[in-house]
Each structure stands twice: as structure tokens, then as C-alpha cells.
């Protein structure tokens, strides 16, 4: 069986500075795979390249049997790859409901969309309560919920979450992580980028540690959780 997402020797540069220097990994359907690493390791760049916002200078991305490397961003979504970007990036002057509808921008089935909007409200009840409110008025955690809900609206085969816990209070962070666990249980395939390595590793099937543009270490989430080097560098133990 081939993997849902296969990344081969991907290289990305900003001008003359290479930010991702040839990384390879894959994501199998139903798995949760996580990329961890410090700031500037190239995690966000990797996700932005996968979703087509950045163009790679080399390598190959294969998603669901198709080569993605040259496909523009808005067509990648149609293939079933959703991306909840770092910093949430909800549309602040649109309402919550409009934000969710935009997540389903490419879908034509009105009844299905309504159903999925309601599912998002079930998943995050607070969103349902404020559906007519401008998204910019939400708190950080609520915005993160909206961003995740919005990404789910395209019925993705693979959900990419970039730093979902960034800047959130510990309680909110737990809530978000619990949601990811719930999504995993429902069978959603997830590629998760996180700085909170402890939480990410503990729910990941596969994990990769990135350092200055390369993958330093790979293994199952549990393996890495117990790896001494990882514990020292990323889990703050010594």
C-alpha cells in the first residue's frame, strides 16, 4: 500500500537561503504524523510548500497518487489536502458562519455543507453560540477552534495543523489537543506541526524531528518520547 502523502527530498528556499534542505517523510491514511523542532527548523515552510503557498526548488510531493509540486494552492485543496495555518488566520471581518462556509468553498452540496457546519458546532459548541459574530472578536483559543473547524469543512483526506497550540492558555491547549485526539479517533489523517513536543509526540503514530531544514530523527511518537536526545532538547529535561 502506498502512503497518502509522500514527500521526497523536498527543498525550499527564500531567495538564496535554503530553509528546507531535502527532507523525506510519508503519511499513511489514518495516521497522525507530527513534525517537531525549534523555531526556524523549517516546519512551517514545509507545510506551506505542501499546500502550494510556496514553490519548492527541488524534490517531489505525491499526494493521493498525484504529484503536487507544480499545482497551485487553490487546486491542492480540491485534492483533499486542508491546511490550518500557523497563527490561525481566520478572516476577522467575516462572521464565524461565513468563515466556515469559506472552508467549504469548493463544495457544491448545500445540504452537506449545512450538515458539516452543524458538526463543527457540535465539535466546538462555543462557535455555534456565536455564529453571527465577526470572527475577529473571538479569543485566541476560539479562533483556533474556528480555524480547525474551517479546515475540516473541505472534508479533507489529510488535515495539516500548524502550531494549533501556539499562544494559548494551558487549559485551551488541553482542549485543542483533546480535539485532535477526538479527530484521530474518528479516523482523520493528520499532519501536525507542534512546538509542544510532549503533547504532539504522545498522540502521534509517527514523528520527525526537524533541525535547520533537515530531518534529524524519525520514529514512532512513543520512541521519540523516550529518546534521550529528544527529551533533552525538546522536552526540557536534563
Amino acid at each position: 500500500m502506498t502512503a497518502l502523502l509522500e514527500v521526497e527530498d523536498l527543498r525550499v528556499a527564500y531567495g538564496k537561503i535554503e530553509a528546507v534542505k531535502g527532507i523525506s517523510f510519508s503519511v499513511e491514511a489514518g495516521q497522525v504524523v507530527t513534525l517537531i523542532g525549534t523555531n526556524g527548523a523549517g516546519k512551517t515552510t514545509t507545510l506551506r510548500t505542501l499546500s502550494g503557498l510556496l514553490k519548492p526548488i527541488g524534490g517531489r510531493v505525491r499526494f493521493d497518487g498525484k504529484v503536487l509540486t507544480r499545482v497551485p494552492a487553490h487546486k491542492i485543496v480540491a485534492l483533499g489536502l486542508a491546511h490550518s495555518p500557523e497563527g490561525r488566520h481566520i478572516f476577522p471581518r467575516l462572521t464565524i458562519e461565513e468563515n466556515l462556509k469559506l472552508g467549504a468553498y469548493l463544495r457544491k452540496d448545500t445540504t452537506g455543507i449545512t450538515k458539516d457546519i452543524n458538526r463543527a458546532y457540535d465539535l466546538f459548541p462555543i462557535l455555534g453560540e456565536r455564529r453571527k459574530q465577526a470572527a475577529g472578536t473571538l479569543s485566541g483559543g476560539e479562533q483556533q477552534m474556528l480555524a480547525m473547524g474551517r479546515a475540516l469543512m473541505s472534508q479533507p483526506k489529510l488535515l495539516m495543523l500548524d502550531e494549533p497550540s501556539m499562544g494559548l492558555s494551558p487549559i485551551m491547549m488541553q482542549k485543542i489537543m483533546a480535539t485532535i485526539v477526538e479527530l484521530k479517533a474518528q479516523g482523520t489523517t493528520i499532519l501536525l506541526v507542534e512546538q509542544n513536543a510532549q503533547a504532539a509526540l504522545s498522540l502521534a503514530d509517527q514523528a520527525h524531528v526537524m533541525e535547520i531544514g533537515t530531518i534529524k530523527l524519525s520514529g514512532t511518537g512513543q520512541d521519540l518520547l523516550h529518546d534521550e536526545g529528544v527529551r533533552k532538547t525538546y522536552l526540557g529535561e536534563d
Binding site: A13, Y14, G15, K16, K55, I57
Partner: peptide, 16 residues
């Protein structure tokens, strides 16, 4: 001619 370097259109990180 910045955009004639290998990666057209790419800008440094920091989405905002």
C-alpha cells in the same frame, strides 16, 4: 530581479 532567484515569489516566514 529578486524573483529571478530560484524560488519565485517566496518571502521570508512570519505570515503577518
Amino acid at each position: 530581479h529578486e524573483d529571478e532567484t530560484p524560488a519565485p515569489g517566496n518571502r521570508p516566514m512570519g505570515d503577518d
